[in-house]
Design a protein around this nucleic acid. Structure first.
Lengths: 169, 169
DNA sequence: GTTGGAGTGTCAACAACACTGACATAAACT
DNA sequence: AGTTTATGTCAGTGTTGTTGACACTCCAAC
C-alpha cells in the first residue's frame, strides 16, 4: 500500500527505497545470475558434469590441499551431496585425495593436471563474461557491485569470502 | 600464466583486470546469490513449495494476466518444468488460469488473493535483505551494482528485464 | 590401555526440479 | 483443408540437494 519503504537507517543518510526499486534489484540479480552460469553450464552439459562439479573444482583450485570439511563450509551443502561429486571427480582423475599426515581422518584435496585444465576451461568462459561486464560498466560500477554483493551475503559466507580474498591479495 | 588479462577495450578507457579480480567477482556473485535466496528458501521449506514456485509467483504477480508462453520466456525453463509448478499452484488456489478472450488458446495467469499473500511474504523477506544491503552500500554502489548486473545478462534476458522495468517505471 | 564421544568420510535411498521426446487438443492463420 | 501456434500431459532421465545409517580415526577421561 505504501509506495515508499521506510525504516531506520542506522545513522547513515536516509535512503528512500521504493518496493519497485528493490524489485528491480531482485530481478537484476535473477537474470544476471543466469547469465553468470550460462557459459560454464554449456561446457559442462557436453561432459558428464554439472554445476556442482564446477563449484568443487573452483574452490579446490582456489585453496589447494583443502579438507573435505573446509570445502563443505564454503559450499554450504551436506557432506553426502559433496561426496557424490567428489567421488566422480576423483575416479575420473581430476582431483586427488590424500589422507592427512597429522590427522588421518582428514582428506586433503588437490587438482590433478587434468583437473586444472578443466577448471581453467570453465573459469575462462566465466571470466570472459565477467571481464566484458566489468569493462562495459567501468571501475566505479565494479566497486559498487562488489560492495552491494558483500552486503548481501550471510555472515558465514562473508567470512568464507573474506578468507579466500585475503589469501591471495 | 599472465597475471594481467589483456584484450581490446572497445573504445573505452583500458581497464587492467587481473584474473584475481575477476575471480573475486565470481566468488562474490556465488556467495551473494546464496544469501539472496536464503530467506525465501527457508519459508518455502516449511510449505510444500520450492524455489521454482517462488519464481512463478513473482513474475505472475509482476505481470498479471501474463500468458504461459510469456512466463516460459522469462523463466527460461521448459514448459513441462513450468507446467508441473503451475499445476500445483492452480490446484492449491494460488494462481488463476483464464482462457484468453481474443485468443482462446492462451491462458492468462493471475494471482488469487491467497497467491498475493504468499508472494508478499516471500518477497518481503527477500526485499528486506536487499534493502539492508542497499542501505549499507549507499546509492552510488547500488547504481554500479545494477550497471554491472545488466552488463552480465544475456541479451534475451536483458530484453525481458527491460520490459519488466519499463512496465512500471 | 581401554573405552566412549567427537570428528570425518562413505554408502544407500529418496525428493525436487531441471531436461528430452512424444503426443493430444484447440484455436488461429493461410 | 492444411499448417502453425499455444497449451497441456505422459513417460523417462539426470543432476543435485536431502536424511539415515555406518565405519574409521583421534583424543581424552577413566
Amino acid at each position: 500500500m505504501d509506495r515508499r519503504t521506510s525504516g531506520p537507517s542506522s545513522g547513515e543518510a536516509l535512503l528512500f527505497l521504493t518496493d519497485e526499486q528493490l524489485r528491480q534489484g531482485i530481478e537484476a540479480m535473477f537474470f544476471a545470475y543466469r547469465g553468470f552460469t550460462a557459459d560454464p553450464d554449456r561446457i559442462l552439459a557436453d561432459l558428464a558434469y554439472g554445476r556442482a562439479h564446477h563449484r568443487a573444482l573452483h574452490f579446490i583450485g582456489r585453496a589447494p590441499s583443502t579438507t573435505v570439511n573446509n570445502l563443505l563450509n564454503i559450499l554450504g551443502v551436506t557432506k553426502q551431496s559433496l561426496n557424490r561429486v567428489l567421488r566422480t571427480l576423483i575416479t575420473d582423475g581430476l582431483v586427488e585425495s590424500k589422507v592427512g599426515r597429522t590427522d588421518k581422518r582428514e582428506r586433503h584435496l588437490t587438482l590433478t593436471q587434468a583437473g586444472r585444465t578443466l577448471e581453467q576451461t570453465l573459469s575462462d568462459a566465466q571470466r570472459a563474461r565477467m571481464r566484458a561486464a566489468f569493462r562495459e560498466a567501468g571501475p566505479d560500477a565494479v566497486a559498487g557491485f562488489r560492495t552491494v554483493l558483500e552486503a548481501m551475503m550471510d555472515n558465514e559466507m562473508r567470512a568464507s569470502y573474506g578468507r579466500l580474498k585475503d589469501a591471495t591479495s
